[in-house]
């Protein structure tokens, strides 16, 4: 029995050895490479953030810069806003004005309200160069963004001219050295504020910085007829977000209290249908009662001759 086993081993020795050698050849270099990779400490790969810069100019001519900090997760391909990131805001190219450092909130937004007292540097064409900068940290690479805008001033006036509700707009670019240049051949949309959004009611084509628009008579207002009329650029390449608004009682007066007919039950007089119904029922029933009582009287005074 033992002899047979040895004979088999001898017969198969060469192929088995070759197979083992092949396995060793394939696997050993990999094991070595694995050991190498574990032994070397590779630096953590920083994420490249997405940094946006927006500018809003409001009714009181104040301007706000908004830096939005986010990143894209390469695995899930989702975008995430990051809270607690310090962003530095600047204005100007040659002579840089530091506007301040602000930290992003849970929406990834850092809001920089520019003090109107600050004189913002402008280039020859009147552009103001805004920039935002992130210095980088252990997880995110440094990043920045910039925006070149022209300072534009809008004036909105609402008046009734010849019984026509007229919205008039005057728009001037404020260039270097406070030089004012009228805006021309630009379409400016006009909106009315609604509860959840803004309704576009028309558009003014500015000519030499001025234009007007006939406000429609069928726009619903609040209980006093008040509407808020807005002239604005939403995301203009030169002016970014810029708005001017004013409230006036040009809307149709609306009442949120639906006019119901007062409940008849609570009035001094009962409704006719109720009086009629009740009268018929009572007359019907009491009529029968009276008839039966008359019959009872007849019974009392019944003919005696019929008595057996």
């Amino acid at each position: 029995m033992k002899t047979d086993i040895f004979i088999n081993i001898q017969k198969n020795f060469k192929p088995v050895c070759l197979l083992l050698a092949l396995i060793c050849f394939i696997s050993i270099p990999r094991v070595v490479a694995q050991d190498d990779s574990e032994s070397e400490s590779e630096p953590v790969k920083k994420v490249r953030p997405i940094l946006k810069l927006l500018s809003n100019k409001y009714d009181d001519n104040s301007r706000t810069l908004i830096g939005i900090f986010s990143y894209k997760d390469t695995e899930t391909r989702e975008f995430f806003k990051v809270k607690g990131i310090a962003l530095n805001f600047y204005a100007g190219v040659d002579s840089i004005v530091e506007l301040g450092s602000f930290t992003t909130n849970e929406d990834g937004m850092a809001v920089c309200k520019i003090n109107p007292e600050i004189k913002l540097p402008k280039d020859e064409e009147g552009y103001i160069h805004f920039s935002v900068e992130f210095e980088g940290n252990d997880f995110f690479r440094a990043s920045d963004n910039e925006l070149d805008l022209i300072d534009l001033e809008l004036q909105l006036s609402l008046e009734i001219l010849d019984s026509v509700k007229t919205v008039s707009v005057k728009a001037e670019k404020i260039l270097a050295n406070d030089e004012r240049v009228p805006l021309t051949e630009v379409d400016l949309p006009i909106y009315v504020q609604r509860m959840f959004s803004q309704l576009k009611v028309g558009e003014i084509t500015l000519d030499e910085g001025e234009g007007s628009f006939e406000f429609p008579n069928n726009v619903p207002g609040d209980t006093l007829g008040m509407v808020t009329i807005i002239a604005k650029f939403d995301d203009h390449e030169d002016y970014a977000y810029l708005r001017k608004s004013q409230s006036i009682d040009w809307g149709v007066v609306t009442s949120h209290h639906t006019i119901y007919h007062p409940r008849s039950l609570w009035t001094q007089v009962a409704p006719i249908w109720m009086i009629v119904t009740l009268s018929i029922m009572l007359l019907g029933v009491w009529g029968h009662y009276i008839f039966v009582m008359i019959e009872m009287v007849r019974l009392k005074k019944g003919p005696k001759e019929t008595v057996q």
Partner: peptide, 28 residues
């Protein structure tokens, strides 16, 4: 007893009256 006697005339009156009142009390 209202002078009721066991005659057809008396019975008819009572019977009619009871029928009317039976219908009335059901409705009421």
């Amino acid at each position: 007893a209202l002078g009721y006697q066991d005659t057809p005339w008396h019975y008819k009156i009572i019977s009619n009256a009871k029928n009317i009142m039976a219908a009335m009390v059901i409705a009421i």
